[in-house]
Computed example of a mutant assay.
Amino acid sequence: MRRALGRLARNRGALAALAVLALVALACLVGPLLTGHDPGRIYPDLVRTAPSLRPHPRPEAIAPAVERLAFRMRVTAEAIRVEDGILRVTLSAPAPINERALSYLPRSDLFGPTTVVARDAEGRRLSVEAPVRRLYFPLGTDVLGRDLLSRSLVAGRISLLIGLVATGVALLIGVTYGAVAGYAGGRVDAVMMRFVDVLYALPFVFFVIMLLVFFRAGLGLILIAIGAVEWLDMARITRAQTLSLRNRDFVRAAEALGLSAAAILRRHIVPNTLGPVTVAATLLVPRVILLESFLSFLGLGVQEPATSWGALIAEGSRAIESAPWMLAAPAGFLVAILVALNVLGDGLADALDPRLSAGR
């Protein structure tokens, strides 16, 4: 294991992939707390805002925004100006203005709390001030005005969680099932592997649709569907390794010493299959994430208010002509994770290759 870790440490591509995975996972974990936006918060005046590092609202957009808010308040906005980040505007109306209507300004998320600095005797004309907020959307906003960076990072939590949990379930079931089948051999092996073949023949999408008849679509359904299918490959890999190990001298010696089948599997068979299994697991995580994205794209996966990269990609595909950044943002995160996992899997395959270990 030390030699394998040394070879992995000399593989720059694998180290770069590991760094990308760590950075994306850390960003998904703590990033939403640092963006300044709640993932579910809607900015009605900033719908489909293009990605930019400039703050919003833009100077040229302040006057139209104030006029729209004034129309809702049933007043007329006059002498609109911004000085030192403070909005100053005069509001007039044929009848006395109810000051409670001024709450429209801070409610828009573009301006802070309003202050009345002057009024006429009849209350038909008010001079008000309000601070102009500075909102940043590096990846833009969606069709409802929600920050795409925050939503992509929160969606990454769901996608990575599904990838890791489903892979863990596949490892637990597949390694146990394959090791038992390979070590038992004979009719037990034949019956167990025919059951695997039957599950292979079941179309995955049909299986998910069948589950939807009995369960509600959501995160739990995805974990059940993916976990029920993805362990099959792991079982075959482990069985093949076990068949090559069960006639080795150290296994025969353990049998001669009277160790039980469970102890031999636990202490001798399973530990010697971890090399290929570890490589397969790193390649299984991106496949699980792609499956989740596929199900969410079809509307069979994660449901609102929760979201995932697949769900965001589905939303972005529907608005690709008017807002292409809605597709580019979550797709960029997904591609980065998939490429990094595949590169890391290749690096682990090279590091754990027994022929390389024998050569050294």
Score class of each variant (00 low, 15 high):
Arg58Val: 03
Leu110Ala: 00
Gly85Asp: 06
Ser293Arg: 07
Arg48Lys: 14
Arg133Thr: 12
Leu348Gln: 11
Ser317Leu: 15
Gly310Ser: 11
Gly182His: 00
Asn98Lys: 14
Ala256Asn: 12
Ala351Val: 10
Arg10Asp: 14
Asp38Asn: 15
Ile269Trp: 01
Gly332Thr: 09
Arg2Thr: 13
Thr176Pro: 03
Ser103Tyr: 11
Pro44His: 06
Gly186Glu: 02
Gly182Thr: 00
Leu171Arg: 04
Gly301Trp: 02
Arg134Pro: 03
Pro57Ser: 07
Glu60Pro: 00
Phe204His: 06
Pro324Arg: 07
Arg216Gly: 11
Val205Cys: 06
Gly6Asp: 09
Pro96Cys: 10
Ile80His: 04
Asp189Glu: 08
Asn98Ala: 15
Arg88Phe: 09
Pro203Asp: 03
Val196Lys: 02
Thr141Pro: 05
Leu212Lys: 12
Val198Asp: 01
Gly140Trp: 03
Ala130Lys: 04
Phe214Glu: 08
Gly182Arg: 01
Val229Cys: 11
Thr167Ala: 13
Val175Cys: 05
Ala22Ser: 08
Ala155Ile: 04
Pro55Asn: 10
Ala262Thr: 15
Arg74Ala: 15
Leu91Ala: 08
Ala130Glu: 05
Pro59His: 04
Arg2Glu: 15
Val180Lys: 00
Ser103His: 13
Gly163Ala: 07
His56Trp: 13
Gly185Thr: 00
Val277Leu: 10
Leu356Ala: 14
Arg107Met: 13
Ser317Val: 09
His37Pro: 05
Phe333Pro: 04
Met193Thr: 11
Phe204Asp: 01
Arg74Pro: 04
Pro39Leu: 06
Asn272Leu: 09
Arg248Lys: 15
Val205Gln: 04
Ala93Gly: 13
Ile313Cys: 06
Val75Pro: 09
Leu69Ile: 14
Glu230Phe: 02
Ile237Cys: 08
Ile173Val: 15
Gly140Asn: 09
Ile86Asp: 09
